[in-house]
Design a protein around this nucleic acid. Structure first.
Ligand SMILES: [Mn+2]
Ligand SMILES: [Mn+2]
Ligand SMILES: [Mn+2]
Ligand SMILES: [Mn+2]
Lengths: 219, 219
DNA sequence: ATAATAAGTTAGATTGATCTAAATTATAAT
DNA sequence: ATTATAATTTAGATCAATCTAACTTATTAT
């Protein structure tokens, strides 16, 4: 029922909301690259449909129904990304753009078949969790690499940001998910981290980068 | 550049035009399930863009550019259908609906990768030719089964109509492309054909069905 | 040749998604 | 407590895609 435009709003509301599930309408409009009045009128529409909690001048949040709808769209997006990487051989930096379009395809069968062929994956190629058929998300609790201390050995499990730039940067350092990383040292001045991985590879990663690397302690 | 709506017009213009490449605007509007005035205004738009030859009250046709654009969309549609059947295990009767949506995805890479994974197929699951990357179509010259005579042995190569109903009918008779068929007899009264295939299977097919079965003599 | 019918076009309205400019409300700063 | 600033909303316009009703042109039948 939801148009691609409406689906994009729900998805952004879901993924960009803060810890309390709230977001300001102007911030939302920026993510969606539309003007504030455009977002304002669309939000009224979604509120009318019972998908968004909206009161004038207050922060926005999704209703239970809105969250469920959003989860279905995110499911379609992330299954697609996984399919493109695993079954079609695309690099993890190439799939977001395509998934951004395919997520709007209306065909439960199509996505369920992807899911089946992939063996019901739990996460997408960037480590983000894939909602199940009921819209339920089971996310591991991960910590930022930048919060780890010298001597910690961790598994790179997800990215807090999956921009093409960052993904290409990671490619250039042969950094990929499921890799074991060891914190060799931390520069007190700027928090740069010396990381060891892949037998003997050592790289200095900026705090900015380490902030976006989500890891699991041990495994 | 073309919207999904415009793409659907171009595709329909291409596939539903007569031998001279022409079609009436009302007929077009019926295929697209829009009113005649809607089609009229869209055709003016496409004509403005140099994709359609349009003169008031005359039949419509695609320009060279329009034909090329149309071929690209048809390429996306048919590659998708082939991919869905060959790589995702869908039945040939299930893929048109999905392809109708995926054909509007804007990502040359995505479709070229499908093409590559499929080994550059020449035809879709219904035997229709797939335009190449340059929009060139190479179609075999096929004849209708209904034009064959008793004793002819032919290969079922394509369908003149791929409606879900017809495809399910063919499924129920285990009729599929590349099958060798032999015309055993033709009923003079109604042109029903007695066809033998798959070792010893024999079926009586109506003229209506035989009209839509396109075959190649010998192989 | 005229009239009836069918096909195609024009006029005018609607809906969703978008914009800019202007007004209002909330928040922050003095 | 006022005032300045930032966020949000309202007003009003535009554009694509659609519709129905009315009109015009072409085709067909008598
Ligand atoms: Mn993505
Ligand atoms: Mn999208
Ligand atoms: Mn098709
Ligand atoms: Mn389509």
């Amino acid at each position: 029922m939801a148009s691609p435009t409406e689906e994009n709003y729900l998805k952004t509301l879901f993924t960009k909301a803060d810890k309390n599930g709230e977001i300001a309408i102007t911030e939302l409009s920026q993510y969606l690259k539309v003007s504030a009045p455009t977002a304002n009128s669309m939000i009224k529409n979604l509120s009318q449909q019972g998908l968004v909690n909206y009161e004038k001048y207050k922060l926005l949040s999704l209703t239970a129904r809105g969250k469920k709808e959003a989860a279905f769209i995110i499911r379609k997006h992330r299954l697609t990304e996984m399919y493109l990487v695993e079954k079609m051989g695309f690099g993890w930096e190439m799939v977001h753009e395509i998934a951004e379009q395919i997520e709007h395809i209306d065909s439960p069968r199509f996505f369920d078949r992807m899911d089946e062929l992939l063996g019901y994956p739990k996460v997408d190629p960037h480590g983000s969790p894939i909602p199940d058929k009921n819209g339920k998300i089971t996310a591991k609790t991960l910590v930022k690499l930048s919060d780890c201390k010298v001597g910690d050995t961790v598994t790179l499990s997800a990215l807090a940001n999956s921009s093409e730039e960052f993904l290409k940067y990671l490619n250039s350092k042969q950094l990929q998910l499921e890799l074991k990383l060891r914190v060799e040292a931390i520069e007190p001045f700027d928090q740069n981290m010396k990381i060891k991985y892949l037998r003997n590879r050592v790289e200095i990663l900026s705090q900015m980068a380490c902030n976006k690397l989500l890891v699991e302690k041990q495994l």
